[in-house]
């Protein structure tokens, strides 16, 4: 199945796992996704390959960024009828707490959808949703 078919299928079934698995980088970091009602919750499982700081140990900040960037892309693919993977124009990330070596979750909010550009806010947490480890905002080009 090609990417376009996977996108259509994911939107119809509200199941993004096959689409996520089609992206090599998402497979590398071990990303997955489940539905909580209508909400998509993205998961970055505890994976020693993702460690950046061996001292704490903590997940590499770049992996947290890549995970959240991916979450925003899949969220937009879920919300909007598009045939292409949206392009990231910019990505801005605030690190709020150390990303400990444990499961990480992310949810997205499409803040504004324009004709060409979508603004998405992403929050990542580990223990509780109201204690985010990182918040991000990004502009995606459709």
């Amino acid at each position: 199945m090609d990417l376009h078919e996977l996108m259509v299928q994911a939107r119809e079934n509200r199941n993004f796992q096959d689409l996520i698995s089609a992206v090599p980088y998402a497979r590398l970091i071990g990303m997955s996704c489940f539905n909580l009602g209508e909400e998509l919750v993205f998961i970055l499982p505890e994976n020693s390959d993702n460690i950046g700081n061996p001292t704490l140990p903590a997940i590499h900040g770049g992996v947290i960024g890549g995970f959240m960037e991916n979450a925003a892309i899949f969220q937009v693919l879920g919300n909007i009828e598009t045939n292409r993977i949206p392009k990231v124009v910019d990505f801005s990330l605030d690190y709020l707490r150390p990303g400990r070596f444990q499961d990480t979750f992310a949810t997205c909010e499409v803040v504004r959808q324009g004709r060409k550009v979508v603004n998405v806010s992403v929050s990542a947490w580990q223990v509780r949703r109201n204690e985010p480890i990182a918040n991000a905002r990004t502009h995606l080009l459709l």
Binding site: V23, P24, Y25, A26, I29, G52, H60, G61, G62, V63, G65, G66, F67, E69, N70, V88, F91, L93
Partner: peptide, 11 residues
């Protein structure tokens, strides 16, 4: 993907 670029630049 942008993710490995983020890791490259963060590092």
């Amino acid at each position: 993907h942008g993710g490995p670029l983020t890791t490259l630049m963060d590092t």
